[in-house]
């Protein structure tokens, strides 16, 4: 009984399945398949040996140029400030070095000139005349050159440019 029911079910299922509409291959199926076979058989292009190293090198170059670009994009005021600070540091270092090399004059031995000797002049009489040594006179400041007197432009005195001075 049970066995019969099962058989009935199976045959109905088969009928149902067979009643389903048939789906056919579309037009040009073979050609498309042939085309796909051809495309599938195309040789594969491969990356060169140095591919990975080249990419990493390009990345490093990129990063470097990006840094440079970022610096260039800084606002003008910041760049001036940086330049000012840099100049101040350089100036400070230069000043420090200059003062360090210029100050220790005391270490240089002072040049001492011997005191002028007494001068003896033999005289005909056999005696000697002694001259006192010349006194050291502190250097006097040089007087400024005398101002050139401007020719008087007083009335009555005629000046002719280029002509010799006329004595009054």
């Amino acid at each position: 009984m049970m066995h019969e029911t099962n058989e009935n079910h199976e045959s109905r299922l088969t009928e149902l399945l067979q009643s389903l509409p048939r789906v056919n291959a579309p037009d040009g199926f073979e050609q498309v398949t042939q085309l796909r076979v051809l495309l599938d058989q195309l040789p594969r292009a491969q990356a060169p040996e140095s591919f990975e190293d080249d990419v990493l090198a390009r990345l490093r170059d990129d990063e470097r140029s990006q840094k440079r670009l970022r610096l260039r994009r800084l606002p003008r005021s910041v760049r001036w400030l940086a330049a000012g600070v840099g100049a101040a540091i350089v100036g400070g270092v230069a000043y420090y070095l200059a003062t360090r090399t210029g100050s220790p004059t005391s270490t240089i031995p002072a040049v001492t000139t011997p005191p002028p000797a007494e001068v003896k002049i033999p005289l005909d009489s056999g005696a000697e005349e002694r001259l006192a040594p010349p006194q050291r006179v502190p250097a006097t400041p040089q007087r400024p050159p005398k101002a050139i007197e401007q020719p008087s432009t007083a009335p009555g005195k005629r000046i002719t440019p280029g002509a010799p001075d006329q004595e009054d």
Partner: peptide
């Protein structure tokens, strides 16, 4: 890169 380079190059 090792895994995908050839595929992408092709």
């Amino acid at each position: 890169m090792r895994f995908y380079k050839d595929e992408l190059v092709n």
